[in-house]
Design a protein around this nucleic acid. Structure first.
Lengths: 217, 217
DNA sequence: TGTACATCAGTGAACGCGCGTTCACTGATGTAC
DNA sequence: TGTACATCAGTGAACGCGCGTTCACTGATGTAC
């Protein structure tokens, strides 16, 4: 993955895997410097390549970001499916599992997560991108649908359940990624606290949903 | 507020309220164009003023953003307090109220909300900014503390309750602001759907929290 | 009520910079015969 | 197995642009006497 960053040492004329290398570099740059500070030239520089090289693979900056976003939606769907597969297989267990997967993915791949949900210029008509986005959302919706059927929710309540579940994991991921964690004490082990909180959130929300949605006026 | 945008028509040499005008312009620009597309020069241009003028009021771009963020935290605290004041006054009611206020603020002032939580360059040591930030967080924490005491939560559970509540409203606000609302049908009245969902979320979460947190292993 | 003068709040030209993209090019690769 | 040649994947210089900030300046305002 970091195979050919920085110029020099044994370069041949052809890079060999510039496409992948540029994506990896772009992700690192986004994670480090945020939305600003991300430039195509800087990506090229870090990949040890001339500023014109990326155009051969991505056309322009939107193309590169769209490639990252596609990886993002696919990875998000994978992570949610993996989370569901780890669960006990019950509708609630699977709901908990996709929540776990969602948070795990966001924290493991901040750049992909941000590119998906921030308002970056993306080529949303690109077929692989559109397919990946639909797959990720479909995974969430299907899992909620099963849990909602089990809980006997009407369509309005089902939609509210989806929005609450999604909002909760999405909000938590964003707060952590944006460093908005005043609830973690100064001396505390940050990593451990985040993991424990994620676990509590995720164990909580399917039960809370079913309970709360059942009996509200 | 839009009193003196665009040059011409009756300008005197002195603007009169350039500071306020620049803040308003910057917010509009941020809401329109997002993080990129926001530049100090464009603000000055829209305020009908030379590119050097903002420096007299804000020093530099970080100063302007910090001023917006200060308004943001103060407005967020105000909105939460107003939400709590509208409630029935019970701990759960007040918790529901601050959630309502949080969402209301975020949707009404997208730029302020984003500047607070995005990773913009801010002068966090600026006293008024720091005070506003602390006030907003304090409002959330105090309301949760009362509700947690009533529900008999231990400190770990109280913290989880805070994080869940905050995450939920924060996540919903972000999804809506980022246009990530595939759960709203194409033909549907978007405004109305968002309001109805916000209402359901907010009515749900205090009850769900108390129920869910009580009996988890 | 006037007047001198300090201070405030703007101007506009200029700076150096890094950006995305284009262009004609060239070295490397792979394929047809 | 060789060889001609098309295609691929890079180079590096150049373009025009808009940016944040600086600078010396000037018009307007407000205050002391």
């Amino acid at each position: 993955m970091a195979e050919r960053e920085g110029p020099g040492e044994g370069r041949s004329y052809h890079h060999g895997s510039l496409r992948e290398s540029l994506i990896a570099t772009a992700e690192r740059l986004l994670a480090e410097r945020g939305v600003d500070g991300f430039t195509l030239r800087e990506c090229a520089r870090r990949a040890g390549v001339s500023p014109a090289a990326p155009a051969h693979h991505f056309g322009n900056v939107t193309g590169l970001l769209t490639a990252i976003a596609t990886l993002g939606f696919d990875g998000l769907a994978d992570a949610m499916e993996a989370g569901a597969a780890e669960s006990d297989g019950t509708p609630r267990g699977r709901l908990e599992g996709i929540g776990r997967g969602y948070i795990r993915f966001a924290l493991a791949h901040p750049a992909r997560f941000r590119v998906i949900f921030g308002r970056f210029p993306l080529n949303k008509a690109e077929p692989r991108f559109a397919a990946a986005a639909e797959r990720a959302y479909g995974c969430l919706a299907a899992t909620i649908a099963v849990a909602a059927r089990e809980a006997g929710l009407d369509p309005d309540a089902e939609r509210a359940a989806l929005v609450v579940a999604w909002s909760t994991v999405h909000g938590f991921a964003n707060l952590v990624l944006d460093g908005q964690t005043p609830f973690i004490a100064a001396g505390e082990d940050r990593e451990a606290a985040i993991e424990a909180l994620a676990d509590r959130i995720v164990r909580l929300f399917p039960a809370a949903l079913a309970a709360g949605l059942g009996g509200s006026p």
